[in-house]
């Protein structure tokens, strides 16, 4: 990147929650992301659609630096993710600083990834007590509150293996919310669920969206995109093919690849 001025961070608090500029990522010689530009304003729900292998999950994982990007820039809440810009030089952030950035970004995985050796409540309490140094009593009070919010207060003492997939995913949402994130990332949160369990998880996510949380959601749930999404981006082969409001893109896709994809999933 020759033009450094283009990469100056938008520091004002009113700026977008997520801004990605020309993001590139390759695994070996496979180019997964080939120049992604996305801006998600505060309080918006951004739904990412696309065929598998289009790079949408990778992009999501770049936002909280679980994957290191090869080129481009990503800002969350005005701060560069994983790096620090001083003058013309870019410095890699120390692990600790990256961890501090991740605390403010919640993530929900396709395979839930709950900690199997802890009950639901302990799962939710783990990060606040270990990472934020919150007192056990406070974390417990807040944990029960969050489990109640996703409709699982009475399952607090159950271990993940005793919960259905839908319940596990809702505990995972509560676990991420326990860190009071300003941004939530959802990586195909309903793809590993039995069809009759999808509804409860989507309801929890809708509830969260209504509360004003900024969300980036990779999903195949077109109904959710239409109902909750403020913006929709369609990715294919590592680039954003089309973006706009869900209503427009879903009703009137401009690009043949979007049309082709939607005809298969709708």
């Amino acid at each position: 990147m020759s033009d450094q001025a283009r990469h100056r961070a938008p520091e004002d608090a009113a700026g977008p929650m997520v801004r990605a500029e020309n993001v590139h990522k390759a695994f070996g010689h496979v180019k997964v992301l080939r120049g992604i530009d996305v801006t998600v304003p505060r309080g918006n729900v951004c739904v990412v659609l696309g065929p598998s292998g289009s790079g949408k999950s990778t992009f999501l994982r770049c936002i909280n630096h679980l994957e290191k990007i090869d080129a481009g820039r990503i800002w969350v809440d005005g701060k560069l993710v994983g790096y620090q810009q001083k003058g013309d030089k870019l410095y890699e952030l120390h692990d600790k600083a990256v961890a501090a950035q991740r605390r403010e970004i919640g993530m929900v995985f396709q395979r839930f990834n709950l900690f199997p050796h802890m009950c639901a409540l302990e799962n939710v309490m783990e990060a606040p007590t270990q990472v934020k140094g919150q007192s056990k009593a406070e974390a417990r009070r807040r944990g029960i509150e969050l489990l109640d919010r996703v409709g699982l207060a009475e399952k607090a003492r159950n271990y993940p293996s005793q919960l259905s997939g839908g319940q596990q995913q809702r505990v995972a949402i509560a676990r991420a919310l326990a860190m009071d994130p300003k941004l939530m990332l959802f990586d195909e949160p309903t793809s590993a669920l039995d069809p009759e369990l999808v509804g409860d998880v989507l309801d929890a996510m809708k509830d969260l969206a209504r509360s004003g949380m900024t969300m980036v959601v990779v999903t195949h749930e077109i109904g959710f995109a239409r109902e909750v999404g403020d913006q929709l981006i369609f990715m294919d082969d590592g680039v954003v093919v089309e973006s706009g409001t869900p209503r427009d893109v879903l009703a009137n896709p401009q690009h043949p690849r979007t049309r082709d994809f939607l005809s298969k999933v709708l």
Partner: peptide
């Protein structure tokens, strides 16, 4: 141990040591 476990701990902002010790 499933790598997703370490990933989930990392995404929650845990340090490498915490993820090892606790998860």
């Amino acid at each position: 141990v499933d790598p997703g476990q370490d990933e989930a701990a990392t995404a929650l902002g845990m340090s490498r040591g915490q993820a090892l010790r606790r998860v």
